[in-house]
Structure formats: C-alpha cells, structure tokens
C-alpha cells in the first residue's frame, strides 16, 4: 500500500489494526467527530506518542491543536468525500519536519483520515 495510492481511503476503510501498523507512513483514523479511533505504529514513531495515549481523544483539540486551522482541520468542514494533499511542517519531537498530509474521507465512509509522510 502506497501513500500516493488513489484508492488509499477505501483501502484504509477496509484495513484492520495490524494492517495499519504495517504501513510505512503515519495514519490517524478519526470518527465523524474527530475522535481518534486508530493511531498506527508509523505515526506513533513520528510523534513519540503511544496509541494508548491518543486513541479516544479529539485530534484537533486534544492531540494536535496547532492543526486546528483552515489549512488542515478546515478541509474536513465540507461533507462528503475528501482526498487532498497538503504540504505542512510538523514539530515532531520539536524538530521542524516538513511533511505531506493527505486528508481523506470515503464517500459514505464512517471514518476520516489524516495520513502523514515525511518529505
């Protein structure tokens, strides 16, 4: 499974926890209210936060409040399918880290995703 795969959102919808952990890029899966439902191994390695700490929290208010802006959180405002790439800089472990974010929601999907790949 590739970060640039056009069918990534559908693939993530079908993936179980082990499959998410096997991905080489970070994935945050959120429910309709942005509560984190899955935080894969790659994402955990990037941020330094364990899934146990993050799952069950609201991503934009309790995990990464600095992404609660028009560039990231704002993309999820419109209902329906979403698949967009956003160049961004994360402060992963306080190091400025240029990343590409891929924000996704399948048509009719219950989950929404924030995938992270270092640039």
């Amino acid at each position: 499974m590739d970060f640039g795969d056009p069918e990534l959102a559908a693939t993530l919808d079908a993936a179980d926890a082990a499959e998410l952990d096997a991905l080489p890029f970070g994935v945050v899966a959120m429910d309709a209210t942005f509560v984190v439902v899955a935080y894969n191994r790659a994402e955990s390695a990037l941020s330094g936060l364990s899934p146990e700490r993050v799952v069950g929290r609201n991503f934009f208010s309790e995990v990464a409040p600095c992404t609660a802006n028009a560039m990231v959180a704002g993309r999820f405002d419109a209902p329906g399918a979403l698949d967009v790439e956003v160049p961004y800089v994360f402060a992963l472990r306080m190091r400025p880290t240029p990343v590409t974010l891929r924000l996704m929601r399948s048509p009719g999907g219950e989950r929404q995703y924030l995938a992270v790949q270092r640039r």
Binding site: A64, P65, C66, T67, F90, A91, M94, P96
Partner: peptide, 16 residues
C-alpha cells in the same frame, strides 16, 4: 532553529 513546538510552527508558518 534546533527545536520548536507546534505553537511555534503555527505562528511562524506564514513567515516561512
């Protein structure tokens, strides 16, 4: 810039 927290990224991003 050796280390910066997310609030710093957010504030400096428009300048960067």
């Amino acid at each position: 810039i050796e280390m910066v927290n997310p609030a710093g990224m957010r504030l400096l991003m428009p300048l960067a």
